[in-house]
Simulated scan of single mutants.
Amino acid sequence: MTSLLILNGPNLNLLGTRQPEVYGATTLADIEAACTAHAKTRGISIAFAQTNHEGEMLDLIHAAKGTHKGIILNAGAYTHTSVALMDAIQSVEIPVIELHLSNIHAREAFRQKSFIAQVAVGQICGFGAIGYTLAIDAIIDHLGKKSAVGA
């Protein structure tokens, strides 16, 4: 069975209470429940992790190699600052979908730069919590195309 890792970064544990005007009222537990239900309909398994620590995110990405076929990554503020995350993604050679609840391109200038985008399959941003299920579908589609060409 195909397994995906959904990895959430700093402050995402506060979803539902942190700036609901930007990030919505949905909690991380709500997102995980929606993703689990959606994954079941797609015949895949999902593992979830959330950390506020960059080094732990690196360790989780490294550990995904050989365990998960893809990663959905909401790196939070580390998106805009972490060359280390970019390098880790490139090193494990696992397809990654970059995900953001808000539209980072319509926000402050510093949020419009993504180190993750350079090594991700694609980016989903601005759709709120539904972005997670969109990302699941996108990574499954990508993995299917990759298998079809023998990669």
Rank of each mutant, 00 (worst) to 15 (best):
K40Y: 10
E108Y: 03
C35R: 03
A49N: 02
Q118C: 04
C35P: 01
C125F: 07
R111G: 09
N103F: 12
L99I: 11
A120N: 01
E32T: 04
G43W: 05
H100N: 13
E108K: 00
I89D: 04
A37F: 06
G66L: 12
I97P: 00
I46L: 15
M86E: 11
D59L: 10
F115W: 15
Q123G: 01
A37V: 12
V121S: 03
I44H: 02
G55M: 05
A84C: 08
I136S: 00
S114T: 10
M86A: 14
K65E: 14
K145G: 06
G70A: 15
I140H: 02
S45H: 07
S102K: 07
I61M: 05
S114L: 09
H62A: 13
I136C: 01
P95C: 07
S91L: 11
A77Q: 12
I71W: 10
D87E: 15
L101E: 02
N52Q: 01
T133E: 05
H142D: 06
V92N: 06
I97G: 06
I140E: 07
G76P: 05
K65D: 00
A106E: 15
A49L: 08
A63P: 06
A34L: 10
Q112F: 05
H62G: 01
E56S: 00
E32F: 14
I61G: 07
Q118D: 11
A120K: 09
H142G: 00
G126M: 12
H100L: 10
V119L: 02
Q50N: 14
A120P: 00
S114C: 08
T79F: 13
A84W: 06
M57S: 00
D137S: 09
L101R: 02
I136H: 14
I31C: 05
Q123E: 08
A120E: 09
A117C: 06
P95F: 08
D137N: 14
C125N: 10
I139Q: 10
A37I: 13
I71Q: 08
H62M: 00
R107T: 07
G70Y: 03
L143K: 04
T81A: 13
H105A: 10
